[in-house]
Nucleic acid binder design. Sequence first.
DNA 1: CAGTGGTCTAGACCACTCG
DNA 2: GAGTGGTCTAGACCACTGT
Lengths: 264, 264
Amino acid sequence: MTRRTAGPLYQRIADDLRARIQDGSLPPGAKLPTELALAKEHGVTRATVRQAVQLVVNEGLVVADRPRGHFVRKIERITYRPQEEWRERPDFPELDQFMDEQVELGRDPHQTIAVELTAAPPDVAARLGLDSIGTVVVRRRVRYLDGVPFNTNDSYYPLDLVEGSEIMLPADIGRGANQVLAELGAEQTHAVDEIEIRMPSPDEAERLEIGLGVPVAMHRATGYTADGRPVRVVRNVLPGDRHLIVFERSRGRDSTTPSSNAHP
Amino acid sequence: MTRRTAGPLYQRIADDLRARIQDGSLPPGAKLPTELALAKEHGVTRATVRQAVQLVVNEGLVVADRPRGHFVRKIERITYRPQEEWRERPDFPELDQFMDEQVELGRDPHQTIAVELTAAPPDVAARLGLDSIGTVVVRRRVRYLDGVPFNTNDSYYPLDLVEGSEIMLPADIGRGANQVLAELGAEQTHAVDEIEIRMPSPDEAERLEIGLGVPVAMHRATGYTADGRPVRVVRNVLPGDRHLIVFERSRGRDSTTPSSNAHP
DNA sequence: CAGTGGTCTAGACCACTCG
DNA sequence: GAGTGGTCTAGACCACTGT
């Protein structure tokens, strides 16, 4: 942490706040001094203090809880393992995988499911190899943990592949949508995971109750059958303050250089 | 894009800017109207316009290029494949892998290398299984593409493992540090990749020339030998506007559930 | 009701780049 | 030298929360 001794006033005030957070005198969850108090302390107007506070808010260090005050952000991440979707499931699971794992950890998960028929958005169409009029089935899920929205999970399937199947029903699929796909003759043997880091759109921020200063990961997974046909695209939006993405890899032949069907 | 018809003025102005960016009337690279022009257009003061502009800047949609004006951000990402570090390399490579791949793509890469001996930072110590006084060798690299800093790559090795080896020299290792480790009797057979999404610290922002509104991914890779001993931790800081992280996976036994040595 | 942050105005001066 | 955004002041009113 480089301490500034010159430069704009608001930067110096922000430096001071960061230092207090880092050295523990303002621990996670602590309430910051009020804007008025900071103004008096530094001999500036409230407007200048607000610039400083805005800065640390946009860095994700501090959250505004209006009108109680500003507080040091508490961060608690769950581990998100894209590879686990291919883990063996119990023979008669009652919940889907996300729910299942979280219950094991003593959390209270639930999710909303909506199914929709639309034209494939461009990124999905490109990965599914569909032309511009390709119709897809989308399963949109919002997942909650202890009442807080945690991530969104939108799965896209070519309509002709899943028409009439369980995938089109807005309900949990205990054995997993991938299992249903396999039963439909489209078993997936490999997948490509893409992770894009950016700030959320206003829509995403609202849907996931994301505050300022929290970026998201857009995780896209494209699943392929043995003959290289893409049969599924999943778009996950993961708020950065609530997720740690984990992959494991071995030096085996099949997990290093699959070489084909790579996107983009 | 939900258009607002009520609410704070600056939000409405920001909505208007977003809409113009999304519908193409302000394409990537285009110059926004000046703050004064926007103020007149919307019948508000410059301070209010600045709030609106700050918002879209912090969303990463717009960059300030002072004092020329504000411009719509152009985003161009390179593909970053953690698994590729285990790709077969040419017998007599002259450059390291990052450089090599980028030259193939017609870019001009270079990197700075500094080697340092320090106590292991807590996150590294935890992953290497070292106690609080464990000493490590750090190879710090900053990688540039066409003169722009692209990412940082700090590799940590237990001192007793690499002492006296090529790893301690601040120069490119054509055949790769992993190959050197193997020659030292510490061949890695599997690894855990962790990806954390957050806003950059002021230090990181400066080192990587990151503007407001650009989050980073912290990618940590921990490499293990066949007997499960961690021998290397790499910390990569990847600015979100310049990277797309890609993994590929097969449904084979070894790439799905390695189960042991997982962090955290 | 008091205290907090959120929004907005009106104005001032500065540093830097470009023509 | 004109024009841009960056910084800062002084003041006002509002909406919401907790007591």
